[in-house]
Design a protein around this nucleic acid. Structure first.
Ligand code: MN
Ligand code: MN
Ligand code: ZN
Ligand code: ZN
Lengths: 140, 140
DNA sequence: AATGCAAATGCAAATCGTTTGCAACTGGAT
DNA sequence: ATCCAGTTGCAAACGATTTGCATTTGCATT
């Protein structure tokens, strides 16, 4: 049977956007698509250095900005820390951040999404994007 | 008739929290309670200097942190810019940011709030606080 | 396979928003 | 009026991110 979703081919996408596939970009894309967490630039950099020791942090930042512009990654600015990233594969979701562990849990509510639309409608706005973050602690 | 809501007396609150009412704090509180917008530290500083030319930006930052800790102000980290503040008087609300003008529009949905609770419940979490920001443009 | 050149890189320095060390200065309790 | 811990202004430090620039590299062209 077929996989439920086809994985995006980011290198193809970059190429057809007229952007060069360089070694650092290959490495960073590989890290991004191979991770299911939300690493920050420094974490991506550390992982990248293991694959290609010559990569610089500046290039990680430049690449994240490039990929964000192409819609290939999402940037999150959770409270307190540096920006964190995730590949833009997969469906939209929002985040619950565990204040004790820093763990990020993904969730999605179609109802909330609809209500957001409705609110924007009533205010005469079109939503470009939004951000819903819940900060909490495990109940015990 | 009485006003619908009684305005908080921040100076009293500070005093009873064992915190000194200094001149810079008076000025900053006056600015905060007298504003209905969401100024950043530099904007607060500029307004403060007009009232007392000796105030420093460092004190604005220190005071904002102090007031935030006391629950007297809320800090927002909207996309792109520096942190912005508003006094914590009034009821909870979320924000719609106009991407063209930077204008911040407040809204509230009891239904969304309830759904957030429900989601956290199902994930076994207690929400400490949350952040819902809509970024959009005026429909035309 | 060699050439050419704009695009991309690494490095270090710069920038931005925010925080902090420290000596001088109050607020407010006595 | 005195006292002293809390608070201030200043400048320097900070962490995250961006940028200038000389060098390297992808890749389109021969
Ligand atoms: Mn996610
Ligand atoms: Mn508000
Ligand atoms: Zn959402
Ligand atoms: Zn809310």
């Amino acid at each position: 049977m077929e996989p439920a979703t086809t994985r995006r081919d980011y290198e193809r996408e970059l190429r057809q956007a007229g952007i060069r596939i360089t070694k650092p970009r290959k490495v960073i894309l590989q890290i991004l698509t191979g991770s299911e967490d939300h690493p920050d630039a420094m974490a991506i950099f550390r992982r990248a250095v293991k694959i290609d020791a010559s990569i610089s942090l500046a290039t990680v930042y430049r690449t994240m900005k490039l990929l964000e512009g192409l819609g290939a990654v999402h940037r999150h600015a959770f409270e307190g820390g540096p920006a964190r990233f995730e590949h833009a594969d997969g469906a939209h979701h929002d985040h619950l951040i565990d204040l004790d562990t820093g763990k990020v849990i993904e969730f999605h509510s179609e109802t909330i999404e609809r209500l957001q639309q409705q609110i924007a409608d009533e205010l005469g706005y079109d939503i470009e994007h939004h951000r819903l973050e819940l900060y909490g602690r495990k109940r015990r």
